[in-house]
Amino acid sequence: MDYVYAFLIGGIVCAIGQVLLDATKLTGPRVLVIFVVSGVILQAFNLYQPLVDFAGSGATVPLPGFGYSLAKGAIEGASNGILGAITGALTSTAAGITAAIVFGYLVAVLFNPKSLR
């Protein structure tokens, strides 16, 4: 059943993104920003956690899930003082961001852009 929930929630988030891309003039990067920030804001009011508990990957894999991890880390860090509040966001997402930078750099150096297909 977990898989069905993951499919539904993940699919719905992506479908919302598709509507934003098609119906508004927002470009891809802007939509990504909106999703991440909305994940942060939702989690600030502890609204995203229930979705993660319910759908697992269905809620964490789409970009609001990235915003959720950032906010969650910052909120958890806040209980350890101001330094924790500042570093918490990056600590919780360090693995993903580091992987994206290092592997992204590697891929970009190794591969060449392709022309049209």
Partner: peptide, 19 residues
């Protein structure tokens, strides 16, 4: 195509849908 696209629009390998 490849020079204009990256100057005016999005990089070639960027995943996007054109209207």
């Amino acid at each position: 195509y490849c020079t204009a696209e990256r100057q005016f629009r999005m990089p070639l390998e960027h995943g996007n849908q054109k209207p």
